[in-house]
Design a protein around this nucleic acid. Structure first.
Length: 435
RNA sequence: GACCCCUUCGUCUAGUGGCCUAGGACUCCAGGUUUUCAUCCUGGCAACACGGGUUCGAACCCCGUAGGGGUCGCCA
């Protein structure tokens, strides 16, 4: 039988990374088995399920390149079918009506648990079971006439022909109920697999309060969709060997539920950042360049495209997330860059530096061609003849022209800035800090 | 509280009775390469929750204990 999995979120305007990871695992599982991956939008909460919220959901899936094989099923269109099924259960004596008081408007429909112990093979956790005495009847249609999650969810999974339900392990208790519902409805019980939660350092479910919890947060921070996909896939699953940075195809090929972890996991932003850097390095040049120009625009920097491209060449290999770009390049486009106080104190305001910078300025002025090779050779000669160390010359020059201690290779950096800017900045630095 | 689930370095994980003096990755630290910055290379720190069994042999099997989490809605 063909494998069919689904992602069944309720659109709330934000997509939690735990949910997204569940979506990724469903997708990976379906693709691994050559099956179908479906989307069901559980939009019965009309308040929150706005068109914008649904769009946010679709955007997140597109960002992760989670392609679906059929048109999405919107749960709100299925209410009639849900209620019909409830009537059927009622007529068969598998459910009953009762006024439980609570919400006022009369009788609700309650599903009668069949009274037998239940156990099932969880694809991740193994055999799970629960005694009949620990399971109670539950409401499937509210007294206001609307179907409850359990009913709708099971019915829609049957409707969509879902063979494998892969969801968070906070649903384990629901699964016992759902199995009873499948059986009462005369449907095949699908396979279940329960994924551990993503938790915070305290072991509690990871939430907004713990930091970045939504897909959008990571996107804004400059992470790449492919990198986050890879990271999330590995958070709770491993291919069994030492591979970590993997292509989509490799992940699809290697994915198995049996290799999924059954304990909770924490997000480690440092490792994600590292992994993102690995992906940045592999990014096709034009994609990276496009992202670069987008960041320029975001930072409100207007610049000559040719000049900007040269700057891009300098920083291309030292960026871990696209959000790193803007803070790294300010001084290329703005003469009023800030000086790092610590750098000024430790490297600039020392004996002899004023003189060194003045001499370097002189050398640069008299250079025939102010390019990478020219400045390189000139400074080497200067270091040799002056008896100063390399650090004692390069560091002050770097700080003078950029305000910071670290950055791209110094000589190409000087070449991109150009002689006029470099001379002007050296002058200003001497005046401002060394006189 | 009842029921259910979980427990290997700080974090993500490998490990399914001998290959484990427990491997990899991120982070951190120390050297080295780069006569700047970053990269890179090498090395190091660091874990089987605890207690009983079973076995010639246990991270792996069984039973307890402890700790953590989930569920117990006319939310999804």
């Amino acid at each position: 039988m063909k494998v069919r999995t689904r992602f069944a979120p309720s659109p709330t305007g934000n997509v939690h990374i735990g949910n997204m990871r569940a979506a990724i695992y469903n997708w990976l599982f379906a693709r691994h088995h050559g099956g179908d991956f479906l989307l069901r939008v559980e939009d019965t909460d009309r308040e929150r399920s706005t068109p914008e919220a649904i769009q946010t959901l679709l955007d997140a899936m597109a960002w992760f390149k989670l392609d679906v094989d059929e048109e999405p099923l919107y749960q709100s269109t299925r209410m009639e079918a849900h209620l019909e099924a409830a009537e059927l259960l009622l007529s068969k004596g598998m459910a009953y009506k009762e006024d439980k008081g609570g919400k006022g408007q009369g009788e609700c429909i309650i599903f009668k648990m069949p009274g037998n112990d239940t156990s099932f093979e969880d694809g991740i956790k193994g055999t799970l079971s629960k005694a009949a005495e620990n399971m109670q009847d539950f409401v499937i249609v509210r007294s206001n006439g609307t179907p409850v999650f359990h009913l709708a969810n099971v019915l829609d999974d049957i409707e969509q022909g879902v063979t494998h339900v892969i969801r968070g392990d906070d649903h384990i208790e629901n699964t016992y109920r759902h199995i009873a519902l499948y059986q009462a409805l005369g449907a095949d019980v699908p396979n279940f697999a329960h994924l551990p939660m993503i938790v915070n350092a305290q072991g509690k479910p990871y939430s907004k309060r713990d930091g970045d919890a939504f897909v959008g947060d990571f996107r804004e921070k400059g992470f790449l969709g492919d990198a986050l996909f890879n990271y999330l896939a590995l958070l709770g699953w491993s291919p069994g060997d030492d591979r970590e940075v993997m292509t989509r195809d490799e992940m699809v090929e290697a994915f198995e539920l049996a290799r999924c972890q059954s304990s909770a996991a924490q997000v480690d932003l440092r490792k994600l950042t590292w992994m993102n850097g690995e992906y940045m390095l592999k990014l096709p040049l034009e994609d990276f360049e496009a992202a670069f120009f987008q960041e320029l625009e975001k930072a409100g920097i207007e610049a000559d495209p040719e000049y900007a491209k040269q700057v891009f060449g300098l920083i291309r290999e030292r960026v871990k997330t696209v959000a790193d770009i803007a803070p790294m390049i300010g001084y290329f486009f703005n003469d009023d860059y800030e000086y790092d106080p610590k750098a000024v104190r430790k490297k600039l305001q020392k004996d002899g530096v004023a003189d060194t910078l003045a001499q370097v300025k002189g050398i640069f002025e008299s250079l025939e061609t102010f390019d990478e090779a020219g400045t390189d050779k000139a400074l080497h000669n200067f270091v040799e003849s002056s008896g100063l160390g390399f650090g004692a010359v390069m560091a002050p020059v770097r700080i003078a022209v950029s305000g910071v201690q670290s950055g791209p290779d110094l000589f190409p950096l000087l070449a991109v800035l150009g002689r006029d800017r470099v001379l002007e900045r050296i002058c200003r630095t001497i005046e401002q800090f060394l006189s």
